[in-house]
């Protein structure tokens, strides 16, 4: 990207800067790249109470806004789904503009997951279509997503977080931000009866990976590619 392009963008964006941060032909390394989960998946055990899969290299964005009705509609038209406004809920939609899921984080914050290549498009669409005060920040490399499932997934979560994940208070689609073991930031969402999605910060990924291996030792851990 040249300086000229940069300047154009800055002008086009009502005082905010977006840039395509992804190179065309270079494969990125997820926060758990060093663990080589693919090899573990092909060579490790295939029976166990806990299944783990890294959903790596997604497009991750944090939206801050206090939308009024007009802005809400503009955001919905860009995202393809309405922002969830009920605390601790999430929405997701497959197809259309591409898979998109949105998690409520706080009354003025949402965490959005889209395919990696869609992130920049989304940022650009916000710039052109959403009015008023908001902030949309690309954090694709700042986090990674782990999917945990299996008969003992709840046991592992009980070892790791003070959150009550009983289905009566933690139904499918619920999302919370909390602590995970001794790491201070994680987002947990139920995606099935015995399946959860864990969004963790990049720099804590190795610690949480070690923790999960340890916590699931007594149940057996299956790595999925």
């Amino acid at each position: 990207m040249s300086d000229a392009m940069l300047n154009e963008q800055v002008e086009a964006t009502k005082g905010k800067m977006v840039m395509n941060q992804i190179p065309a032909d270079i494969v990125g390394e997820s926060p758990l790249h060093h663990a080589d989960l693919e090899t573990l998946a092909s060579r490790g055990q295939d029976q166990g109470g806990v299944h783990l899969k890294e959903k790596s290299l997604q497009g991750l964005l944090i939206l801050r806004a206090k939308p009024d009705e007009a802005q809400m509609a503009e955001i919905e038209s860009v995202l393809g789904v309405a922002l969830p406004t009920t605390p601790l809920t999430s929405v997701e939609m497959a197809g259309g503009k591409g898979d998109v899921s949105v998690r409520w984080v706080s009354p003025d914050e949402w965490f959005i997951v889209v395919p990696a290549t869609v992130a920049f498009q989304l940022e650009s669409d916000f710039q052109t279509s959403v009015s008023g005060h908001y902030s949309l920040v690309n954090v694709s490399s700042g986090y990674t997503i782990l999917q945990l499932s299996g008969d003992n997934v709840v046991d592992v979560l009980k070892k790791s977080t003070p959150i009550d994940v009983h289905p009566s208070v933690f139904p499918v689609g619920k999302v919370v931000s909390s602590v995970f073991a001794k790491s201070g930031a994680m987002m947990l969402r139920r995606i099935g009866d015995n399946a959860f999605e864990l969004i963790i910060r990049r720099s804590f990924a190795d610690y949480i990976w070690l923790w999960l291996q340890d916590a699931s030792m007594e149940y057996g851990l299956v790595i999925e590619a």
Binding site: P87, L88, S106, P162, V176, S178, V179
Partner: peptide
Amino acid sequence: PHCGESRDEEEF
């Protein structure tokens, strides 16, 4: 009061 549920002290 924002999340609408009770949590453990360690989150605060």
